Simulated scan of single mutants.
Amino acid sequence: MSTIPLDYETLRLIWWLLLGVLLIGFAIMGGRDLGVGTLLPFVARTDDERRVLLNLVGPTWEGNQVWLILGGGAIFAAFPPLYAVSFSGFYLAMMVILLALILRPVGFKFRGKVNDPRWRQTWDWALFVGGFVPSLIMGVAVGNVLLGAPFHFDNSMRIFYTGNFFQLLMPFALLAGLVSVGMIATLGATLIVGRTEGVMAERARRFGTWTGLATIVLFVLGGFWVSTMNGYVVTSVIDPNAPINPLSKTVELVQGGWLSNYATYPWMIAAPVIGLLGMVVAVLGLRSGWKWTAYLAAGAGIFGIVATAGLSIFPFFLPSSTMPEAGLTLWDASSSHLTLFIMLLATIVFLPIILLYTAWVFRVMRGTVSTESLNKNPNAY
């Protein structure tokens, strides 16, 4: 008889929620830094202005990467089949993201080493790539999850991925990528408006307004597109407490199938509503000078948009476009009952520490960043 106080189904649902928290945490906390990097060459025109933006996110961006590391670690430990398929099938896409992210620490450290405008401008564009490319590719990845990935299992449960990098760049996936870039750039713009002043804040307000409007339009367009495309629906009864076996179910493609969850669980409609309202309020806040209202609303918008994708595909993690019954769901792609419980105990201890430390760092680093404040700080970038 099991001595674990939580049943397998409950633990699986808890880890589905925790994975969502970690991914949304990175989208917001890491997104603010990626957004500033994406806007860097356009909002900041002079060397002093660009130094202001670098020091706006420079002290905290490394800590914000913790959410990405935790998300990857959670997938590896809690959902090993998902890790195996996604990190091998999307290997080239992952490498593109990692190479772009590597440009950020190099750019921060190397940019100020040589007092040459061409040298610094080169690293400014490298920091732009380090913000724009991960934002785009991560959104493209979400789009491909909705489309389904070309993988299957053989009789011995070996995984075979039959796609390639360029097949990931389908029109719908690119649309999802643009939604990702738009919402992250909007969040970055609200941060710049909130913590800088003068002409730079005005430029960020203008860019943030346009990226926010673009996000709203593209998100609505994506919703209509999803309603007309085929979605994956599990058509057999699944035992939520059964051992993992991805081939134990039957799956069908149904037009508009990704919307079926909203009929079964009407409360899920709150996610796209929060996503839309958050971006609308962010745009209004930027236009009206409500600095921190715009920032918080942009964060809520990102929460709603990412949650919309996760709720729409539930219980799937990664559907298969070539062998639908092989699609990975919450119920057949998790670790063992004991593993999930031990991981939960560790999370209960360490996640609050991370949250408290993050809150403390942001409190210490609060305030307006300006050229004058940088001149008083010998450790500034």
Rank of each mutant, 00 (worst) to 15 (best):
T60Q: 14
L22Q: 04
A380W: 03
F219I: 03
L253Q: 10
W123M: 11
A263S: 09
M1P: 11
L18G: 00
T368A: 07
T235Y: 00
G208R: 13
S156T: 15
R32V: 11
E372C: 01
A173H: 08
P266L: 02
V181W: 04
L103F: 02
S260H: 12
L330K: 00
F108C: 10
D33A: 10
V181L: 09
V226Q: 06
V133L: 13
M138V: 05
G30S: 03
V281G: 04
G130V: 03
A346W: 15
V273P: 01
R12G: 13
M183H: 13
D332P: 02
V106E: 03
Q65E: 15
R366V: 05
G163N: 06
I313G: 01
L338P: 00
M323R: 05
G35E: 09
L6N: 12
V114L: 01
L168Y: 11
Q167L: 15
W258N: 10
Y262P: 04
V66D: 07
G72K: 02
P240Y: 00
F128I: 09
V66N: 07
M365G: 11
A300S: 10
A307C: 00
E372T: 03
P272Q: 00
V96C: 08
L127K: 04
F224Y: 15
W61Y: 09
I354G: 02
K113M: 09
F132G: 03
M94H: 14
N144V: 05
L54S: 11
V145K: 04
Q255S: 14
L351F: 14
I102P: 01
I28L: 08
A149T: 04
T358S: 08
G275A: 03
W119G: 01
L11K: 13
I159M: 03
M323N: 11
D116K: 06
L345N: 07
